[in-house]
Design a protein around this nucleic acid. Structure first.
Length: 303
DNA sequence: CGTACCCCCTGGCTGC
DNA sequence: TGCAGCCAGGGGGTAC
């Protein structure tokens, strides 16, 4: 029923943390493209543009992995639904965000290893993406503020600028359901289908509730909207601490079999027909479809 | 403005 | 065991 990896904000952050210690301050020696495109064609001259330059910092913006490269070049990477990075080379331990699936995957030679970056010291970072919904995009110096991908993003949910008042401003007058509003990356950047269900359940808000009903006439957030914001921060922080919502086939920090955050902590996602986990509730989790995607919620404790 | 529906692509699971 | 059919985390586009 589930895939292997769910690239919402906590998972991208986990990948970032896994890559950063090995790639930061390291020079890219060679970039190998195994095909002309992912979701979009690779940027013209990608290899020439970044070979010989250092990766200065690994950052994250919403669900984007951001490689800050020497000379103010930025490589933006969206993982889509199946994108992942694997490190290999001498002295590379398994780290959060690196994956060991099978011998042929992640070495750079697997059937879906589309992009390989070789670094000084023999380290290679391989981007694997079976469905190719992910993409790589290059931002030239001085173009960050106008970048079409970054420009449309709302605040990062873990940033202090994301608070109930800020969200209320975004939702004022919006007639879409809360599920859709939280998935909209221009309102808040980083939430995906799974975490939105989890957040709304914890906040006791129905995914069908019209967004604007959580904003008062004077534009201030209702208590329930404040609850959504606080639960968002709690859930995301917990998930990041746990190394993202990983399933079987993941190898954690030391290469051990990690079950991941999902089986223990997901309260509604994928639990259609199961009892609601709220103690005071005797209802059953339901699955509905909104905007063609699954939503899981409890009709009794989410209003 | 909002939503329903389609697409991109591959793989894993279910049921016959 | 084989295979058709259905499903999937993201996101963009179009038609209404």
């Amino acid at each position: 029923m589930f895939g292997l990896f769910m690239p919402e904000l906590p998972e991208v952050e986990t990948v970032r943390r896994g890559l950063a210690p090995y790639l930061e301050q390291r020079t890219i020696k060679r970039v190998i493209l195994r095909r002309p495109d992912l979701r979009f064609p690779f940027p013209d001259g990608l290899a020439n543009r970044i070979e010989g330059k250092q990766v200065q910092r690994m950052e994250r913006r919403g669900k984007y992995l951001v490689f800050q490269i020497q000379d103010n070049i930025i490589l933006l990477n969206s993982l889509g639904m199946s994108g992942r990075w694997t490190l290999s080379g001498p002295s590379i331990a398994f780290t959060p965000g690196t994956f060991a699936h099978g011998a042929s995957i992640g070495t750079g030679d697997g059937p879906h290893d589309h992009l390989v970056m070789e670094f000084e010291g023999g380290i290679r970072a391989t981007y694997t993406d079976a469905r190719r919904f992910g993409y790589v995009h290059l931002i030239e110096p001085g173009c960050v503020d106008d970048d079409p991908f970054l420009r449309v993003l709302g605040p990062d949910p873990l940033d202090s600028t994301f608070d109930a008042k800020a969200l209320a401003d975004r939702l004022r007058g919006r007639r879409s359901p809360m599920k859709s509003a939280l998935l909209d990356q221009s309102n808040v950047a980083g939430l995906g289908n799974i975490y939105v269900s989890e957040i709304l359940h914890r906040a006791g808000v129905s995914p069908r509730r019209t967004a604007m009903t959580l904003v008062r006439k004077d534009g201030s957030p209702t208590a329930r909207l404040e609850r959504i914001v606080s639960e968002t921060k709690v859930v995301l922080k917990q998930a990041i601490e746990a190394g993202g919502s990983t399933l079987q086939d993941f190898r954690g920090v030391a290469g051990e079999d990690e079950v991941g955050w999902f089986p223990v902590n997901f309260r509604v996602y994928g639990r259609d027909g199961e009892d609601c986990k709220n103690e005071a509730c005797s209802d059953t989790i339901r699955r509905i479809v909104q905007s063609n995607r699954s939503t899981f919620f409890c009709p009794s404790c989410q209003r």
